[in-house]
């Protein structure tokens, strides 16, 4: 019963999850092998979206709670590393795919 209750309360969320899974699959399907590495790297950068949560953690933290602020700080640093590093590395990989003018 609890499970049904949970489903009912989170129906919108479940719809979003289902649809997003399909979008992810569709968007990635039939990618040439050449692009697998840049794609993985790009997807990796996107997973850095966790930084948004890290920022919220810091914003919501009690300003006197130094432990929470320190942890939040660390989470933001790690998250932005993932984002910036990920996008820059992907860009570098793709830079090399530029067609040479012959």
């Amino acid at each position: 019963m609890q499970i049904l209750e949970f489903l009912k309360d989170n129906l919108n969320l479940i719809y979003i999850l289902t649809l997003t899974v399909f979008i992810g699959v569709e968007v990635i399907k039939n990618i040439p092998a050449v692009l697998h590495t840049p794609l993985m790297s790009g997807a990796n950068a996107l997973s850095g979206v966790v930084i948004v949560g890290a920022i919220i953690t810091m914003l919501e933290a009690d300003p006197t709670d130094y432990i929470a602020l320190t942890l939040g700080f660390l989470a933001v640093v790690l998250g932005i590393l993932n984002v910036v590093g990920g996008f820059v590395v992907t860009d570098r990989m793709l830079q090399m795919f530029k067609k040479k003018k012959s």
């Binding site: 969320l13 979003i16 999850l17 997003t20 899974v21 399909f22 979008i23 992810g24 699959v25 968007v27 990635i28 399907k29 990618i31 697998h36 794609l39 993985m40 997807a43 990796n44 996107l46 997973s47 979206v49 966790v50 948004v52 949560g53 919220i56």
Partner: peptide
């Protein structure tokens, strides 16, 4: 946890794309 749409959709996108890859 934060009912944050960009995190949910972005995360699941990476999740399913990564799995397909």
């Amino acid at each position: 946890l934060y009912s944050n749409m960009v995190m949910i959709v972005g995360g699941i996108l990476v999740g399913s794309a990564g799995l397909i890859l």
